[in-house]
Structures are given as C-alpha cells and as structure tokens.
Design a protein around this nucleic acid. Structure first.
Lengths: 265, 265
DNA sequence: TGTACATCAGTGAACGCGCGTTCACTGATGTAC
DNA sequence: TGTACATCAGTGAACGCGCGTTCACTGATGTAC
C-alpha cells in the first residue's frame, strides 16, 4: 500500500498492467456487444461475432464473461444505468421548485436517450429475450428513472400538504375536485378505482410512502404512458399517422403536469 | 360452374382435394409457427423447426411459403387481424350511446387478447425483428384497433356538437374548460401544444377528419398509454411494484373517459 | 369412361454458413523469497 | 536484484448442434380430350 501510484485519487485504479488490460478489453467486449445489438438484436448477440470484431478467438472471451447471458446482463445493467444517469442529470438541472419542469425534463431525456440508443432501448423495454431471465442485479439500475419521477411526485405531495396547512380553504389549485377516495391532499382528478388503493400501498407505494395513492396511481400510469409513446415512436407504430413524436411528447408532458397537479411550468 | 358442390354458400370453398389439403397444411404450418413464437420468439422462428413439428422435410415448407420472412408476415397479419376482431367484437357489444363503456370494452379486450397471446402481442408491439421489415400488407390489419377507438371519439365529437347546437350555454359537461385552441367542441382539458395541430391534421386526422384535434391528440396519447401499460405488464416491468395490472387498467380507462369527455359509463 | 399429359406436394441430399462451450496448450505477466 | 513458481490471457481444435435455401427427383392428384 506504500507505493501510491502516479495518479493519486483514482480510487479503483488498476494496480497492474494485467489489470489495466483486463479492464480495457472488458470494455471493448461490451462495446462490441453493444454494437452487435444494433445489427442482430439481443437475441442475435453472439460471442463469436464479438470475438471476431476484436480479433480474438471465440474462446478467449470466456476469460472475461462466463457465458453469453452474462454479457447480456452486463448490457442490460449498463443500459439501465446510462438511461438512469441521463435522466437524473436532466432532472437535477431544473429549479427544484419547478415541479412540472422537472417532470418534463425527465420525460424528454427518456425520449432523447431512447432515440440515441434505440437498440439498447429495445433491450430494456422491448419484448423479453426468449430463454433469458434478467437476474436480480438488473432490478436496482432499472429503478433509477422511476425513482426520479417519484421524487418529483413526493415534492408535489409535500408542497400540497404545506399549502393545505397554511392557506385558508379555497386557495388550492382551482377547478380540480378532491379525490373522493383520498385524505386531505388534493388528489388529481377522479378518485381511485375500488381495490386499487390497497394494492398500491402494498406495491409501488412502499418505495415512496409519502406520495398519496391517487398521485402514485397517476404517476405509474404516466410512466407507462411515456414508455408507450417512446416505444410507438421507436418501433415504428407512428409511421403514417404522427410525424413528429416530439410534439406529442410535449402534449403528454403538459397533460401530465395538469393531471398530476404539478402546477404550470 | 354448373357443379355447385355440396356446401352451398361456402364461397371460398376449395374445389379439389388438393386445394383442401393445401389450405389445411398451410394452416398447420402457421399454427406450428405460432407455437414456435412462444418458445423462440420472432427472431428464433425457424422453418426447419416448423417442418420438423409437422413431420415434413424442411424443403417441403417452401411449397407453402416462399421464405421465412413470408411466414413471419403471415403471423403478423393474422395477429393484427385476431386482435382487431376481438376488439371490434367487444366494442360492438356495448350500447352505442355508452361512449365510455365502448372505450373501456375496447381497452379491456386489448389487454385480454394480449394476455392470452403474449408472444403474438410481443411480435406485434414489441421490439422490431432485426433484418425484417414489415411489408405494406400489415398496415391495414394493424389499423383495426385504432379505427375502433377513432369511431368512439367520432361519436363523442358528434354528440358534443349536437349538444352545443341544441342546448343553452352552460349545459356542457361541468368543470371542463374549453380548449384555448379549438373551435366549438368542448375539448378535453388544456389546449394543444403549439405546432401539434397542423401535424395532426396532416397525419392521424386524415383518418378521422370529424374528430377535433384536441380529442384526436388525447386519443393517440391514450392509445399509446394503453399499449404502454399492457407492455409493462407482459414484459415484466410491473413485477414487484404493481400486483394486479387489471385494476390499473381500470384506473386508466376511467381517467381516459374523463379526459376524453366520454361521459360517465 | 378411359387415356395422356400437366401440375404440384413432398423427398433427400447438399451447400455454406452460423452458434455456445470445452479443453489441453503456450507464453507472457505478476509475486514471493 | 535475481531466481522459481503461480497466475492468467489468449490459441487452436474440436464437439454437437442449429439455420435458410436450392435442386434434381418421385409419385400422387387434376385436367383435357
């Protein structure tokens, strides 16, 4: 430990040439595999093709990944992480008080990332790969974007609760009836369908107990709707009926802001 | 033409034993291919495996389909048609005046069909198959469900227009501000994002010119949202956070009815 | 009704290619004394 | 600083399997006279 290397501060820096080479080549393998995704899809991902691309013999790849599926898992995890990082960064750049803006920034960056990495997007959110079951290790990275969205909703709930405490009755956002189901928080639009509430509290609600169920339900719906739209665009279902899906996304985000009570941007 | 066959009325009935056998075997090939979808996915669909399943030699399949891709196209077309028929039937069974009920019936039957045919659903709405481009022949069957939904929206627009003509001001559905952008029809919720209107008129609007653009935009969003939710459910993204996606769908349909101004069911 | 010919379903072999994974091996890099 | 040994990256061959598509062929079915 007394020989502190030239680049102080690089915490996980490789200590030996071997280690350095291993990292580099691991990265090259993953990069080549990612490129493969574009041509053959997740199912067509081939260790042999990756090895060929790098000028190695196919069995050499087994020094780095124990199987094709392990390589796929790495692609999944890195994909979720890249998307999550992009969304976190975009959302963090917006004024904390601008809830609608934060939500919209997150939504836009999901779409941008998807358009820049269509095949990785398809891997993350398209049809599952037959014969492959994503391991637990993917769950956490996959939750980064939902976590960002939940953060916005939690802040919205906190703000609404503060308003309800402070202000006199009648200062709540106009024209939005309180959910027939919920408590004091001004829930967005009609009440919850019977039976949904306990289910949300047992499921998604455990990730964000401070978000009231009405809001949570609409948040989940909005998240699914967002990915539905991006999938439509990337998978070609808008061809012939919607020219610029970006505008449709803006519409969706504007409607979301209204339905979720995020206030005008 | 003078030998009118036993079964009068069966218009496209096969005239010869050969023709009868051809139809039957064609059907068996498609059925075996459909079963293959479940095990290997669209990309893994294999003519040889289909032939094996039917006890034929692989080259025999070429008497029925000129290539693997042609077989895939048939699966696509039949899938869209099956889904379309299911949705049409479900929607047609509802009282014409019950717009929210018609919309909900269509939405529910999309989900039911998808759950009953998850692999066909993945073929239709999941990631595109690498190296395969869906031919024009799939466009028409693919539009059956959207057409049903547009029909509901068109009826909603007609009903609202009639109300606006007949009734005195103030009888429109309460609490829903008229879109800032549109004409006389009571558009759902806030106005359209700038730039979206001309695009809709040029695109999706050409299929249903009688539907006002505010409604059309929300209809497209709702359709994408519906498939987003079904995809989430079928592709496993709800695992751990949403137990019963059926309830979530009901919530979505209820919200849709409100947002689209379909009136209470 | 019967015969001659055309159509077409299905066979079997082959072409040329792909894949994931294992295994015994060579030779370079790293480590302990 | 130098030597002996352990680690590990990469090789090359092999196993056993898959695929789409073509082609010359046999034999049954259909049709025209």
């Amino acid at each position: 430990v007394h020989c502190a290397g030239w680049h102080a501060g690089a915490v996980n820096a490789p200590r030996t040439a071997r280690e350095r080479a291993r990292r580099e080549i691991t990265g090259e393998i993953v990069a080549a595999a990612r490129a493969q995704l574009a041509e053959a899809g997740a199912q067509g991902l081939s260790l042999r093709a990756v090895a060929r691309e790098l000028g190695m013999v196919s069995s050499a790849v087994y020094r780095y990944f124990p199987s094709r599926d392990a390589l796929l898992t790495t692609l999944l995890v890195e994909g979720y992480d890249a998307l999550g990082a992009a969304v976190e960064e975009a959302e963090a750049a917006v004024d904390r008080a601008d809830l609608a803006g934060r939500w919209a920034a997150a939504g836009r960056s999901v779409r941008s990332w998807a358009r820049e990495h269509p095949h990785e997007y398809a891997l993350l959110f398209g049809s599952p790969v037959p014969g492959y079951a994503a391991p637990r290790a993917t769950v956490d990275p996959a939750s980064r974007v939902p976590r960002v969205l939940l953060g916005v909703l939690a802040d919205a709930a906190a703000r609404d609760a503060a308003r309800a405490d402070d202000g006199p009755p009648g200062t709540e956002p106009a024209g939005r009836p309180t959910g027939s189901d919920g408590g004091a928080a001004p829930g967005p639009r009609p009440g919850l369908v019977p039976g949904l509430l306990p289910q949300l509290e047992a499921g998604a609600g455990t990730f964000a107990p401070e978000v009231p169920p009405e809001l949570l339900a609409r948040g989940v719906l909005a998240w699914a709707a967002l990915l539905g739209m991006v999938s439509f665009e990337l998978f070609g279902h808008f061809v012939g009926s919607v020219e610029d899906a970006g505008l449709l996304l803006e519409q969706q985000l504007a409607d979301n802001a209204a339905a979720l009570g995020l206030g005008a941007g």
